[in-house]
């Protein structure tokens, strides 16, 4: 490609500014987490005057961060795994069978993505309250309710990605497995899933991230004992004094699992998007 002479300069300047915009908050987060409280309350400084690891140990005591962390971990892990299992079966059906309603199913599932969360938040809240009353269990505020809800949030995108991955596995492979005596489910378990493993891992991490980061439903459907990080992190900010250094330390710590996962998944995600876009 013949590039005009100004382009390299434009590239450096534009990407530089974009990098600055993108990375400054991360820098602020990382450095402020290392400052003592008085240094985040006064005038801002780019370079920490005093460096301390105190915020990283204080943050567990100011709010019950460990409990929030465990809640998020339980909710996000279970909903991610369950979501992927459901998505694998659905995607296998869409990829391998030409059944009536196939298109409607794909479109209907994807279109749930456009519903404003606020629209089904209120009824879902009522459903869980009333269903819990009827069954005599406390569904509203329970982890189970949150797990089921988050499961469906990642489902549409997971199905869509997995269909792309399964389509790229040659059907000759699972036909061969079926000739060898496996049923269709056997072919799925023994041939298709192993061949599409990168996609399945990518989708699992995506589902985990979705549940880990959700705020709206977590703010309504949890109580003090089931509160997740999404809401719990705000507890630092509702006290009289805002412990900004601890907030930043906590933000950093809760980000590490998902950012690490995302960076591992990034390559697969691009592949998956590419596969999905071709269709």
């Amino acid at each position: 490609m013949r590039e005009p002479r100004w382009l390299p300069w434009a590239r450096v300047i534009f990407l530089g500014l974009l990098g600055l915009f993108t990375l400054t908050p991360l820098y602020v987060m990382a450095t402020s987490a290392l400052k003592p409280l008085r240094d985040v309350q006064g005038d801002f400084s780019w370079i920490p005057v005093t460096v301390t690891l105190q915020p990283f140990s204080d943050m567990w005591r100011t709010v019950p961060l460990a409990r929030y962390f465990v809640n998020s971990l339980v909710v996000a892990s279970i909903s991610a795994v369950a979501s992927v299992v459901v998505a694998v079966f659905a995607a296998y059906a869409v990829s391998r069978y030409r059944f009536r309603g196939r298109r409607i199913f794909s479109v209907a599932v994807l279109s749930t993505q456009m519903f404003p969360g606020i629209l089904f938040l209120l009824p879902l809240f009522m459903i869980f309250v009333n269903l819990g009353n009827a069954l005599g269990v406390e569904l509203y505020g329970s982890r189970l309710a949150l797990i089921i809800t988050y499961l469906t949030f990642s489902l549409p995108f997971s199905i869509w990605m997995l269909v792309g991955y399964f389509d790229s596995v040659p059907t000759a492979l699972d036909e061969a497995a079926q000739v060898d005596g496996s049923g269709p489910i056997g072919a799925l378990l023994r041939v298709v899933i192993p061949a599409a493993m990168p996609g399945i891992i990518a989708v699992t991490i995506y589902a985990f991230m979705t549940a880990w980061g959700e705020v709206l439903f977590a703010s309504v459907m949890t109580d003090e004992s089931t509160r997740t990080l999404a809401v719990g992190l705000q507890a630092y900010a509702t006290q009289n004094d805002v412990y900004w250094n601890q907030v930043m330390a906590a933000s950093l710590v809760v980000s590490v699992p998902v950012v690490a996962g995302f960076l591992l998944l990034q390559r697969y995600l691009v592949q998956g998007l590419t596969a999905g876009a071709v269709k």
Binding site: G213, A237, L252
Partner: peptide, 8 residues
Amino acid sequence: PIYAGVIT
């Protein structure tokens, strides 16, 4: 996570 970035 959305809240970590936005709170920063």
